[in-house]
């Protein structure tokens, strides 16, 4: 069947099915199971109100359970089996990983990414938010810096392939190098530093996100605190770093952790730019080498990523619970 036709049918069935389910389930509940009439009317209304939340929740809970909760366990169990999935080998896959030079490289590179990208992105976002807030054309500047958020990681990688290109007639970096009298070189093949050149792409994409959120937080800083500091003789830098930044610290932490999580999941940039060559492998791209080839290893890598994410996950849940109280 033509995918477009199939797509249209899916939209109709999907949306129609959802509406039908919610309306139908609600109708059946009120009319037939616990009708609000007869001698049990009052009791029935209460009962219906106890069941209804679960009717509303069911499709979402089912999908979440199947597509996100089940895989956590499914992946973990799969990672305990060998390549074919028939033999239980315990932590064998993890032992293999620990002994693999490429895995260690990927792991260490990922540590670099996690340390570097969120720090630089948050800092740049904060500085740009503060600077643009004072300008008359600040909103235009913000739009431009925010724009890469809309671009796919693959598209962004391609854009930066141009910037990094070896040919000084294509790559602006090498054009500048040659202009200054140097020899062109391929930035993506410079050992160790090439990791940072790849990180620049993610920083370029994510700074807009940090900027938007931190800019909103900065606007929420009470004016009195700033005025008081200025009257006490603080210079603009002191006002910014000693008065404003401490007050938006919780938001900075949220931005920082959000970007950290992203860094642990993005495989597209490394995949499109270097394919993991030249010592730039990171865990998500390393995992894709085994996808479709050795599910045991692939799931083991995925689970390592899950463990890395775990602290943030727990912290997030704690925050959410604290807010609800």
């Amino acid at each position: 069947m033509n995918p477009i036709v199939q797509g249209l049918i899916t939209i109709v069935i999907g949306v129609g099915g959802c509406i039908g389910y919610f309306y139908g389930a609600n109708f059946v509940l009120d009319r037939f199971i616990f009708p609000a009439k007869g001698k049990n009317a009052g009791q029935n209304i209460n009962r219906a109100n106890m069941v209804r939340p679960w009717l509303f929740l069911f499709p979402a809970m089912f999908a979440l359970g199947l597509y996100l909760v089940y895989p956590v366990f499914g992946s973990f169990f799969r990672s305990l089996y060998n390549r074919s999935g028939n033999d239980f080998i315990g932590i064998g896959n993890y032992v293999t990983l620990a002994g693999d030079e490429a895995f260690r490289t990927a792991f260490l590179n990922n540590v670099l990414w996690v340390l570097f990208v969120p720090a630089v992105t948050t800092f740049l976002g904060l500085v740009i938010a503060q600077l643009t807030d004072r300008l008359r054309w600040g909103n235009i500047a913000k739009s431009i810096i925010f724009m890469p958020m809309a671009i796919s990681f693959v598209g962004a990688s391609l854009i930066w392939k141009f910037v990094y290109a070896n040919d000084p007639d294509i790559g602006i970096i090498n054009a500048i190098r040659v202009g200054l009298g140097g020899e062109p070189l391929d930035p993506l093949q410079v050992p160790f530093w090439n990791n940072f050149f790849l990180m620049v792409i993610l920083i370029w994409i994510q700074t807009g996100f940090a900027m938007v959120i931190l800019s909103a937080a900065l606007r929420g800083v009470p004016e009195e605190t700033i005025e008081a500091a200025i009257i006490d003789g603080a210079n603009p830098f002191q006002v910014f770093f000693k008065i404003m930044v401490p007050q938006i610290m919780p938001t900075i932490v949220v931005v920082w952790t959000t970007i950290t999580l992203l860094v642990l999941k993005v495989f597209d940039i490394v995949y499109a730019m270097t394919g993991g060559n030249f010592g730039t492998e990171i865990l998500p791209s390393y995992m894709m080498n085994f996808m479709f080839r050795d599910d045991g290893i692939a799931t083991a890598v995925a689970f390592v990523i899950m463990i890395a994410v775990m602290p943030v996950l727990i912290w997030n849940i704690r925050q959410a619970r604290a807010e609800m109280r």
């Binding site: 106890m50 939340p53 979440l64 990523i305 849940i317 619970r321």
Partner: peptide
């Protein structure tokens, strides 16, 4: 807006699922 037992727990679960890496889902699904 609806009151039922276990609501807080479910919200916490959603917050937790927000950060589960997609990579985990690929092979089992």
């Amino acid at each position: 807006w609806m009151d039922f037992p276990g609501r807080g727990l479910l919200i916490a679960a959603v917050v937790g699922l927000l950060v589960v890496p997609l990579q985990l889902a690929l092979v089992p699904l």
